[in-house]
Amino acid sequence: MILTRFLSVESWKRWLWSIVRLVLITGLSFVIVYPIIQKISTAIKDKTDIYSPIVVFIPEHFSLDNFKKAIEFMDYWPTLINTFTLSAVTTILTAASCALAGYGFARLKFKGSKILFGGVVLTILVPPTTILIPIYMNLKDFTLMGLLPLLSGKSVNLLNSYWPFILTSITANSLKAGLYIFIFRQFFRGIPKEVEEAAYIDGAGVGKTFSRIMLPNAIPSIVTVLLFSFVWQWNDSFFTTTYLTTSKVMSIQLSSLPYNLAIMLEGGAATNKDPFYMSIVQDTGVLLAILPLVIIYLFVQRYFVESIERTGIVG
């Protein structure tokens, strides 16, 4: 008798907790998803619905006019291709170089490797703003530490090309690369030493051990790094606006979208400059910019979310 009562109190507690949890999680999920829903709903609204008091989420007149405008003003398709190429190239190069460095720091100890790893931590700590101007100067007259003038006679201006991105990502010094090296190092440190020894006894050298045994195991952390690096490169306006001035890349297009809108909409005959309407087209532009990321995330997230315990973020 007492036992059953006890049991029922327990089960009541459990029920209560799952309800609280449900409310919390649904509420917070709503907070996160709300801006996206709102953007979608404003993007498909017709102009006449903007000031209509009865329209909250579902518009009275559907129209894809906002999309057409945003695509036109942002030069969307070329921009998309440019951004995708840039992000994909830097992401792959960064992941490769960071994986090498991370493995080197984790498993292949040499004299002074601890001090060099201190250098990695330093690159994480120093804000990019501190070194931005010297890097800019450096890239403007790029000499590769005095080597290029010896070969061709003069320095090269690398600004406004993809070279800064390629060079920094080959050498594992691109945006937040210190963090990726750290993630890889933590992961490779977690693989048991016996695995490596067994490979050595079976005749695999260091290179083969890395490519045949370590890398296939590291897929979760590789996915994490790829996703982070791709997304951050896609959204980055800090380095992108410094290195590239005229290229059509998503983050530049986005950050100049408000100005472009003001000019273009004012110039058009049919539209007068309505700040609210401008804001709607701007929101549509943002939606178009994040859409590819969300689609990629939908494919990757399963892999990413369910296998975090092996990503190596925690050592």
Binding site: L100, G104, L116, V120, P134, N138, M145, I170, T171, N173
Partner: peptide, 23 residues
């Protein structure tokens, strides 16, 4: 292993000097 370790870290080290320490 020490030799390979240095080779693996080398790309990063180059970048560290050119794009971080000197700047």
């Amino acid at each position: 292993k020490a030799l390979w370790g240095f080779i693996y870290v080398l790309p990063w080290l180059l970048g560290f000097f050119v794009f971080f320490l000197v700047p």
